[in-house]
Structures are given as structure tokens and as C-alpha cells.
């Protein structure tokens, strides 16, 4: 009986907590972006208002879409992002499914919301959405290699793919000077993959509002749009938590709630550094520039990081 309670209620609790936290973080992100631009910015509850409004709007299903794909894509995207929260430890709280999945699974789960958006975009039958979906696929292919390098390098050092194991060792303390440089490079790589993974400026070519009218999401309205909006917020939160779990698992050594607040603070800092500042400071890149950026400099840097960590491991042991 108890296990059933655990199986059912813990994930539901974590999912709803994650949803609320993600929306608050999205509000903070918008507010800080506005402050960077010398604006007042929307209140922190703005994402909640947007969601509520979208839920009340009419949900239009275009006549010539593939209906079952079109309607199920938003749900798959949201479920995919919520699943992530069950595999990534939130500070002092272990992930409920942490024993059943590892870093590789998490990296693949991160592609599910994007794939759902691609499927939904193609299914909506809108030419703008088709262009957006193609761009999204190109972008996914570009940043997968650096992400795979990240998984390989951390696992090389910690000798395990389990996120719980990785986040319980402070990776910076396991390496010599060479490895330190390697890990710094890895951090640069993962921070520069973050905006693309989350489809934010300068890597928002798939959703470019001013040129392809919202891209993938152009035909989505009402409830379906709200689900994509939620899945985007949750995915941002999950990606920042993953970075924190991999690179900044430092503990304060206070009570469990203190640790939790500390974790939220770290997630916020990661989010501001890798998403908000970049989003405000840069303009949108063309899709071929994006692909070039990930395939050339970032892939090379991640290879160098992997090599440095491998050399470091060979020398230390």
C-alpha cells in the first residue's frame, strides 16, 4: 500500500511543485530581462495569468491538419518535460526515479518535447510551421554532439552515468589542473547549448516570430498553446537543475529546506547567466550560422574538454 502511495503521489507532487516553480522562474526571467532593457517589466505572476487566459480561449484545430498528431503533440511535450523532473535530483531531495534512469536517459528525454513540437508543427500543415520544424531538427542535430561529449566526459571522471552518483561527488575536486581546465570548458559548452536546447534568442530560429510568425507554434491556440508554454517553462527549469546537479552540487550544510532554497538560488543563477543575459544581449542567428556554431567551435571545445579530462584521468591514476 505504501509503495502505491509513493508511486502515485510523490511524482504528482513533484510534477505540480515543478510546474509552479518553473512558472515562477519564467516570471523572474522575464522581469530580469525587462530590467536589463531599462523597462519595468511584467509582474512575477505574469506566466500564471498567461496560462489561465490561454486555457479559457477557444482551441482551434485547423481543417487540414493530421488531427491525432496535432492534438497529442502538446500533451507529449508536457509529459516529456515533467518526466525530466522525476529523474533530476532537486537539491537535497533525491529524484524519485533516480535509480531507474541515468544521464543518457535524461539527455534523450530532453529531446522529447522538441520532437513533439516538430511532429506537431509538421502535422499542423502550415508552411511556416514546416519551416520551423525543419529548423528545429537541424538545430537538434547540431547540439546533440556537444551534449553527448558532456555525458561521456562526466561519466569518464565519475565512472558512472547515474545522476545521483555524479551529483553526490563534487566533480571539481576529483581532477588535477588539466582536468580543471577540461571541466571549465565543459561548463562553457553546456552553458552555450542551453539557449538552443530551450529555443531562446539567439537560437530561436525555429520560432522566429518576426520572420516565420511563431514557426512551430503558428497554428496552435488556446489550450494546446498553453501546454507548450508550460512544457517550455518546465524544460528550462529542468535543464538548469541538470547543470546544477552536474557542476555545482556544493552543499551549504544547513537544514533540508535551507539546502532546497540554496538549490533554487543556484538554478536561478544558472538560468540568468545562460539564458536571460544572452537573450537580452544578442540578436537572432540564421539557422546555418547556428549549425556552424555548434558543429565547429563548440564541438571542438567539447572534444578538447573530453581529451583533457581523459589525459587528466590517465595521469592521476
Amino acid at each position: 500500500m505504501e509503495t502505491i502511495m509513493q508511486i502515485v503521489f510523490v511524482p504528482i507532487g513533484i510534477a505540480s511543485l515543478g510546474l509552479i516553480l518553473s512558472l515562477i522562474f519564467k516570471g523572474i526571467d522575464r522581469r530580469i530581462a525587462a530590467r536589463f532593457q531599462a523597462r519595468v517589466g511584467p509582474p512575477l505572476v505574469q506566466p500564471f495569468r498567461d496560462i489561465m487566459k490561454l486555457m479559457l480561449k477557444e482551441t482551434i484545430v485547423p481543417e487540414n491538419c493530421v488531427r491525432w498528431v496535432y492534438e497529442s503533440a502538446p500533451i507529449i511535450a508536457l509529459v516529456g518535460s515533467l518526466m525530466l523532473l522525476l529523474y533530476i535530483p532537486m537539491g537535497p531531495f533525491n529524484a524519485p526515479l533516480g535509480n531507474f534512469g541515468d544521464l543518457i536517459l535524461v539527455l534523450y528525454l530532453f529531446t522529447i518535447p522538441s520532437l513533439a513540437m516538430v511532429a506537431g508543427g509538421f502535422a499542423s500543415g502550415n508552411p511556416y510551421a514546416t519551416i520551423g520544424a525543419q529548423r528545429e531538427m537541424v538545430m537538434m542535430m547540431s547540439y546533440e554532439l556537444p551534449l553527448a561529449m558532456l555525458a561521456a566526459a562526466t561519466a569518464w571522471k565519475v565512472t558512472s552515468f547515474s545522476i545521483a552518483k555524479i551529483s553526490s561527488t563534487v566533480i571539481w575536486s576529483t581532477v588535477g589542473p588539466l582536468g580543471l581546465v577540461g571541466i571549465l570548458l565543459l561548463l562553457v559548452v553546456v552553458l552555450s547549448v542551453a539557449p538552443a536546447e530551450l529555443v531562446k534568442i539567439p537560437f530561436d530560429a525555429p520560432e522566429a516570430e518576426t520572420e516565420i510568425a511563431g514557426g512551430l507554434l503558428v497554428d496552435y491556440s488556446g489550450r494546446n498553446l498553453a501546454l507548450f508554454y508550460l512544457s517550455d517553462a518546465v524544460k528550462s527549469f529542468a535543464f538548469a537543475s541538470l547543470i546544477v546537479a552536474l557542476f555545482f552540487p556544493f552543499k551549504l550544510g544547513t537544514t533540508i529546506w535551507g539546502e532546497f532554497l540554496w538549490f533554487l538560488l543556484k538554478v536561478l543563477i544558472v538560468m540568468i547567466v545562460s539564458v536571460t543575459t544572452v537573450r537580452v544581449a544578442a540578436a537572432r542567428l540564421q539557422i546555418d550560422n547556428i549549425a556552424g556554431y555548434y558543429w565547429k567551435p563548440i564541438a571542438l571545445v567539447s572534444l578538447a574538454a573530453l581529451a583533457l579530462i581523459a589525459i587528466d584521468t590517465a595521469v592521476v591514476i
Binding site: A34, Q37, V40, P43, D50, I212, Y220, L225
Partner: peptide, 18 residues
């Protein structure tokens, strides 16, 4: 920034569906 409509939650969107 001078008039900042976003502080009232007003946002310009790219598609009439939104």
C-alpha cells in the same frame, strides 16, 4: 522601454492564432 507595454502583460505575437 519608454512606454513598456509588457508591464501590463501586453505582448505582440506573430500569429493571429495566439
Amino acid at each position: 522601454p519608454r512606454y513598456d507595454a509588457e508591464r501590463f502583460g501586453i505582448k505582440l505575437v506573430g500569429s493571429p492564432r495566439h
